[in-house]
Design a protein around this nucleic acid. Structure first.
Lengths: 345, 345
DNA sequence: TCTCGCGTCGTAATCGTTTACCTGCTGTGC
DNA sequence: GCACAGCAGGTAAACGATTACGACGCGAGA
């Protein structure tokens, strides 16, 4: 592969001149510019990004740490991050930790060794103690959907309480009084914030949160199935279930279906996240949508600001607003009636 | 960040010695080894992968080109590739082309500039003409689920015809005689191979392929909906539909549901791919599973063999066998009966 | 005693860029 | 006629590792 020296030789100029015409960092006469361009074309020369990174001390690369890209929600996050990064000329190295803390730490070390310009972490298994050494290297880190207690890191997240309020109010508005939730592990602030929003909306409607109507899941589909099993054993089962993510809501829908029940008649179901698959379920899923494109872009922009050394001294926290998407799993809406009609012909 | 020189100085040895204790490339007395280790620990030294790559002329990085990680099938491919690559000490740079050929070519150039050790491409938009310059650089390329006509590239794919045979035989075995298919664009060999398998099984059962029962989709969910619309306008609609991927099958299920119909009673449905979501639909989806973990690993291993210069002269093509996963969308199976029973209590 | 081999380790070139610094040259203002 | 600004371009030192060579010391064999 041709190097800058080959180009310089062929164009009969110095490597400095070649470099300057490539980067536009110094005026070069049009004659030499032309000679250099031709030489580059002739050799189909491409600057070596590795050498450039070494010299410039920047790799134009960001590391993305994710539990598993196979989970649709994470896939969407990665997608939006990659798109935004690409717009700014950055590439992303993807790491799936598989929820293993040891793996995550190893990947982190590797990313640091590769001298990534920054990191975006989602749902990291590590705690403050593990992230501290990273921060000390000066590598900027942005947390996605999570904040590190004790460590002052930029983050982008959702107004989770508001999301829960939207979902809850929706169910209340449609007459439900016994609303159950399938929440996440108590460790995650995401879950506790949503519980808060849920409780607030309930009390503002004169209701109280019945601990019997709370099932703790793990954000995987099976949790939803188990939740339904549990709720149906109650003397007075709920009439609506609000799952804290779409995967668990999918599990709910399927468990309902297998019992010969169907949402929203037998049970109204609302999810959370707004993964694209939520629109393809039967029935389609009412859900609280996270604006992931915006969030991914925000994460990248926060990170780039840090990389450029622009950010303020203290950490910045960007919080975005969710949006309720009403579909068929919670109410009989106009569209589904139309379709039912069509099916008659 | 500490460099190898700092370590050498602190341990009072040469950089060569430090390098050799790091890499074990030369015997070093236990005394110096110990001094070096301590110095590294003291400075929390991590070798700079960029500098190492420059010198060693390898980056331990592979590029992965995908249309969109948001599509579950691609997400699974990327997942399995990343896991396998990671096992071999390689990182992967992820590129979403968005099905844009221009984007794809730009990303390719960027990956080459970054001196990735190899590339894995899936569903590339480019043709032989565009990939040729890449091949000329000597960078190994493995195609996933596709072969490049004219260019001799390694590839890993599925026995698509066999997959179609499995699905078709399954439907025939359960009494279906009018089986429709929702195939992909005629350009993709994947689709034509599956059509072949479908036709073969049909003829071996004394049936012929009815062109009226073929709908050409684009592998997105909406295609499935449109396909159902079309099939139901026929004088004699099919009793079963075989979709060439799970996303289109999801569209079918949803369209059925919205008409008040339900699989498998009103219509048997079989998908293809075996994305993890296919088990969470209502009803759960019978599908032809691609062994993606194996395929991802195979792609990485093919690539690494090329990188090491081990491969044979001509291109290698690994073809893996699909597996039929029978669930509820095609037949009333034992499990669903059980569940129905449970719902009675 | 000399030589040879072996075990250790250091010196310095190298990978392909970028960039600080220097050198000529030309033209202008006095 | 001279000093000097300003432009155009080259020289060579980084960046941080790896690695080809060579050097040194020591013990063994002749």
């Amino acid at each position: 592969m041709a190097s800058i020296r080959d180009v310089a030789e062929l164009a009969d100029v110095s490597t400095a001149t070649v470099s300057h015409v490539i980067n536009g960092t110094r005026p070069v006469s049009s004659e030499l510019t032309e000679r250099v361009r031709q030489a580059m074309a002739l050799l189909s020369y491409r600057p070596d990004a590795v050498a450039r990174s070494l010299r410039r001390r920047e790799t134009l690369t960001i590391g993305m740490l994710v539990p598993s890209i196979e989970i649709p929600f994470f896939a969407s996050v990665v997608y939006s991050v990659e798109r935004a990064a690409s717009d700014y000329g950055y590439s992303v190295i993807l790491c799936n930790s598989g929820w293993q803390q040891a793996t995550e730490e190893a990947q982190l070390q590797d990313l640091l060794a590769r001298r990534v310009d920054g990191l975006i972490c989602i749902s990291a298994q590590m705690g403050p103690a593990e992230i501290a050494p990273v921060v000390e290297t000066g590598t900027p880190v942005v947390m996605f959907e999570r904040q590190m207690p004790g460590v002052d890191l930029d983050s982008v997240g959702l107004d989770n309480a508001q999301g829960a309020r939207l979902a809850t109010r929706h169910l209340l508005d449609h007459g439900h009084r016994r609303i159950a939730i399938v929440c996440g592990p108590a460790i995650s602030s995401v879950s506790t914030e949503r519980i808060d929003g849920f409780r607030q909306t309930l009390t503002s409607a004169g209701l109280t949160l019945d601990p019997g109507l709370v099932f703790t899941g793990d954000y995987l589909s099976d949790s939803g199935r188990q939740a339904l099993d549990y709720f149906l054993t109650l003397d007075e089962p709920p009439t609506a279930i609000f799952a804290f993510n779409d995967m668990m809501a999918l599990g709910l829908l399927q468990a309902l279906y297998e019992r010969g029940l169907v949402a929203p008649d037998a049970m109204a179901v609302v999810g959370f996240d707004g993964i694209s698959l939520s629109q393809y379920t039967s029935p389609s899923l009412t859900t609280v949508r996270q604006p992931l494109e915006v969030m991914g872009r925000a994460a990248v922009e926060l990170l780039l600001a840090r990389i450029r050394g622009e950010g303020p001294g203290e950490a910045q926290h960007v919080t975005l607003e969710p949006e309720l998407i009403v579909r068929d799993s919670s109410i009989h809406n106009h569209q589904s009636v139309e379709f039912t009609h069509v099916s008659d012909h």
